[in-house]
Design a protein around this nucleic acid. Structure first.
Length: 879
RNA sequence: GCCCCCAUGGCGAAAUUGGUAUACGCAGCAGACUUAAAAUCUGUAGGUCGAAAGACCGUCCCGGUUCAAGUCCGGGUGGGGGCACCA
């Protein structure tokens, strides 16, 4: 089948035929209804809903205005729109806004490449993408739209920054930071993936810089424990966040340092394996540990060693290959339990300053890194524990059991031969050390403070001033916003704000003297950490309107990609807490329900030269294994590759504009909603889209048939059958839509469509019943294919617009049956069925089953060993 | 290395949470309509054996619990994801 986008049947042919036979033409219909919804202001959330009206806030992660929307957007926004339209029909006052995550690097890259200005580039892209989103017919409240690069938005973000500063939630410190040499900016830990910049892919370097940080680490415990309360979040995301926060419990103690420089007599250590305190043979500190820096002053060899450590990259491969390097300081440390026990102190390249205290106790028998190090430098290996009953001692492989594993202790608190779990030994050791005053229990987190300074132009300026006399001074609130200058150039790399001739010059808010502005801007993840709160009232002068925020927040249903499981979602949770402390928000958790949707994926194609080809550039023939493809332009063979995420580099994208132009927005929406479970990837295929469009046309024919139907002799039984089918479907769909199980809901609607069509053809179902079935079906379809539903609604002659109609009620009595058919099993295998009255009691069912001929012959006169009757479910006869 | 998830026809997937496995869709095959095609409609469809009735097998593999297992438990295989010199 050809992979071209043209629907070769011609949508508007056969003008001579009657309306009912005419194909549905989505283009004009869709624009018509979009205009009517807009004029009726159907989707604008009321600021003052009638008392007692329940509210519902549904939000999809707002897009970065990269230029054009892609199929991932279509899926994300279609899913959100189903919820929004459904909840509206259910009587909720719904907030469903849209905005733009508009600051960021690509605008500057475009500026450098195309001699445009980031601002113009960004707002042009927004205009394009807004038109595209509007063509999808999403029920968005466009009156609340904003972009994070709007001065109205980032001005309030600067106010938030100042409030955080006042509350001690923002601070400046000199720290080793991740420096991206290509983007020429600092990256947060969360933005470094495998040692490479998340955007540029460049190898990240370590640099010492003074930076602004948000104190997210203050909330480590809270951010972790509150995950339990997020019942409507995927377990996967919660696990990922918990791992990222990385809580561990262990023993903190001090080594005494013999011959230490002044002020370094004690060396704080943290270990999660308290039981290894009985087998240490060395101690080590990080290359950038304060003690190492102090010792370096008197020893140039340390400078050389530290440079060696810095030379090793931070990528996963580099770390994998890196040899354990150590520098013997010549100092020794003394064991807290026994001051006569001395251990050599090394500076080691595998010790991280950023975790724990930047110093470790080395127990080679039970840590592979420590063992490698010990072997290299000829240090002792002391076995603390061995597998129970084993004579083996550690040689080249460290023995590292799980905390729950039972082992035999060779040396442990003077009780060699003790058999217990590692956890028990650790707990007892810790208690013992605390009792003796040798150490204390301590909780440690992996989560670091969030570095937010970026050396970029296209971001929110950090509203502080550097004064020679007063130091770093926050800008006065009445001087906000600190506005980005427009006249900047991008001809050389680096931050244009740094080299702007006048913008930096200002007066010190404190002394009134000459001062310089901070030229760093905020990480764009700051922008997206509170936008959801701004939507509650995007025009207010303060960051939030607390009254409006209270009405809408938390977001009832948030929908977006799993790629934000840590970064954006963790930052937003921190922001909600910080905004609560500073009086801008009344909730700690911003998102009550979270759904992470799968990607839209597509087959890939490679031409004879190894170049990637677009789906539109090739022709596919054959089926299954016999499928083969050729390049349209050259006739050369094409290799059909794997199914992968749609991406520009693999050229396997499908442009939503093309699909909407050919099939209409409804078809595109229906397809991305119907095929796969929403949290799994959906494979985009041309056949699948055509299948979805076939249903659009089929529904169109059905509605005309039913609108014109006149049933002469109706049959009560047929009427009841269809009414039951209709209400059973409604009951199921009513459960599936709120849990976002759209694929299952679609399947139910298909089943009902089959039943309605059969009833209409059968001629025994009365017109009102057919119309009721059709009406209810349209209402179930409306959240997914709103334009088609609206047009069909009109054809049927229903009141008003289906988008404004209340969701139909299930008639409960139609869900029950008078008689039911139960499967009958013999020894657990289905052998037949029995049909009995629905209200027949167990004894009655047993009697009926035993009277069945195939059961009688199986029993051959003997009574069954057991007879299991599960009412309404199944019968099992055990011989 | 540590943590998490997944596995069902040719394909995407359902299965009321332990109760008729494969609903619904896609692709296929056969037929109707048509001069023909498209569009549309009807039928068919897990595997093996059988003319048929039917029998047996069947939800990645091996075992277990149960009257009953795709679903629960133990062990494995394969695939995907997250974290990672984290002490």
């Amino acid at each position: 089948m050809a992979a071209c986008f043209c629907l070769n049947t011609g949508l508007a042919q056969r003008e001579d035929e009657t309306m009912a036979n005419e194909r549905y033409n989505p283009g004009p219909v869709e624009t018509k209804w979009q205009r009517q919804w807009n004029e009726a202001k159907l989707f604008e959330a009321k600021t003052d809903p009638a008392p007692g009206t329940p509210t519902y806030y549904v939000l999809e992660m707002f897009p970065y205005p990269s230029g054009r929307i892609h199929m991932g957007h279509v899926r994300n926004y279609a899913m959100g729109d189903v919820i929004a339209r459904y909840k509206r029909a259910k009587g909720f006052e719904v907030l469903h806004p849209m905005g733009w995550d508009a600051f960021g690097m690509p605008a500057e890259n475009a500026a450098m490449q195309n001699k445009t200005h980031p601002k113009g580039w960004t707002y042009d892209n927004i205009a394009t993408m807004r038109t595209q989103l509007k063509s999808m017919g999403l029920s968005l409240d466009w009156s609340r739209e904003f972009a994070t690069c709007d001065i109205d938005y980032y001005a309030r973000q600067q106010k938030l920054f100042l409030d955080f500063l006042k509350a001690g939630l923002a601070y400046r410190k000199s720290a080793k930071v991740n420096w991206d040499p290509v983007d020429m900016t600092v990256l947060a830990n969360e933005q470094v993936i495998d040692g490479k910049g998340w955007r540029s892919g460049a190898e990240v370097e370590q640099r010492e810089l003074t930076q602004w940080f948000f104190k997210i680490s203050d909330y480590s415990e809270d951010l972790l424990s509150a995950l339990d309360g997020l019942e409507e979040w995927p377990a996967k995301v919660k696990t990922m966040q918990a791992n990222w926060i990385g809580k561990s419990k262990g023993l903190a103690f001090d080594f005494g340092v013999k011959g230490a420089p002044d002020g370094f007599e004690k060396l704080p250590i943290y270990t999660t394996r308290a039981d290894t305190m009985f087998g240490p043979t060395f101690a080590a500190i990080a290359a950038d540990h304060p003690l190492a820096l102090e010792l370096e002053k008197a020893n140039p060899a340390i400078t050389k060693f530290r440079a060696e450590c810095d030379a090793i990259g931070t990528s996963a491969e580099a770390i994998e290959k890196a040899e354990k390097l150590g520098f013997d300081t010549g100092l020794t440390v003394t064991h807290p339990a026994d001051p006569s026990w001395e251990l050599p102190l090394f500076i080691a390249n595998f010790v991280l300053m950023s975790y724990g205290t930047g110093a470790i106790i080395g127990c080679p028998a039970h840590d592979q890194r420590d063992l490698d190090f010990a072997r290299k430098y000829g240090l002792d290996v002391i076995d603390v524990f061995v597998p129970v009953g084993s004579e083996e001692r550690v040689k080249d492989v460290a023995f590292v059991p799980a905390k729950t594993d039972t082992v035999e202790y060779v040396c442990w608190m003077g009780e060699p031969g003790t058999v217990q779990t590692c956890q028990q030994a650790m707990d007892k050791t810790l208690a013992h050390f605390e009792e003796k005053g040798w150490g204390r229990g301590q909780t440690q987190f992996r989560l670091r403070d969030w570095g937010v300074s970026r050396q970029r132009y296209w971001g929110c300026p950090i509203p502080v001033v550097h004064c020679e006399k007063c130091g770093v001074v926050p800008e006065k609130e009445e001087n906000l916003p600190v506005q980005l200058p427009y006249d900047v150039t991008f001809d050389i790399p680096g931050n244009p704000l740094d080299r702007h001739p006048t913008w930096r010059n200002c007066t010190c808010p404190s002394c009134g003297g000459e001062a310089l502005r901070e030229t760093d801007t905020m990480d764009t993840f700051v922008d997206s950490s509170w936008y959801f709160a701004r939507f509650a009232d995007p025009t207010t002068d303060t960051p939030t309107n607390p009254q409006a925020a209270d009405r809408w927040l938390p977001v009832d249903q948030y929908i977006g990609g799993i790629e934000h499981a840590i970064l954006h979602l963790l930052y937003s949770r921190f922001f909600a807490r910080a905004m609560e402390i500073t009086g801008h928000l009344g909730v700690k958790e911003p998102f009550k329900g979270l759904f992470t949707q799968g990607m839209v994926v597509h087959e890939t194609y490679k031409g004879s030269e190894g170049q990637w080809l677009q789906p539109a550039e090739i022709n596919i023939t054959g089926e299954g294994d016999a499928r083969s493809a050729t390049e349209l332009a050259t006739g050369q063979p094409v290799k059909i590759g794997g199914i992968e995420k749609m991406s520009k580099s693999k050229r396997n994208t499908v442009d939503p504009d093309d699909i909407i132009a050919t099939y209409g927005a409804d078809t595109a929406r229906w397809f991305v909603l119907s095929d796969s479970p929403p949290d799994r990837d959906v494979i985009w295929t041309e056949a699948g889209v055509e299948g979805a469009h076939r249903f659009v046309q089929r529904l169109w024919r059905m509605v005309h048939q039913i609108a014109g139907a006149e049933t002469a002799q109706a049959d009560g039984a047929a009427d009841l059958d269809l009414r039951k089918a209709t209400h059973k479907t409604l009951a199921k769909v009513d459960q599936m839509i709120p849990s976002l199980r759209n694929n299952a809901a679609v399947a139910q609607i298909y089943t009902l469509a089959n039943a309605v069509e059969a009833a209409a053809r059968g001629g025994k179902t009365s017109t009102p019943v057919l119309r009721e079935a059709m009406t209810i079906m349209l209402q179930m379809i409306a959240p997914m294919m709103p334009h088609l539903a609206e047009e069909c609604w009109q054809v049927l002659g229903c009141e008003g617009m289906v988008s404004a109609a209340r969701w139909p009620n299930v008639e409960e009595e139609l869900l029950t049956e008078d008689a039911m058919t139960l499967p009958v099993q013999i020894n657990g295998k289905k052998r037949g069925e029995v049909t009995v009255a629905a209200d027949l009691d167990k004894a009655g069912v047993e009697e009926a089953v035993l009277a069945l001929p195939f059961v009688e012959s199986a029993l051959s006169g003997k009574p069954p060993r057991k007879l299991v009757v599960v009412p309404g479910r199944i019968v099992n006869v055990v011989l």
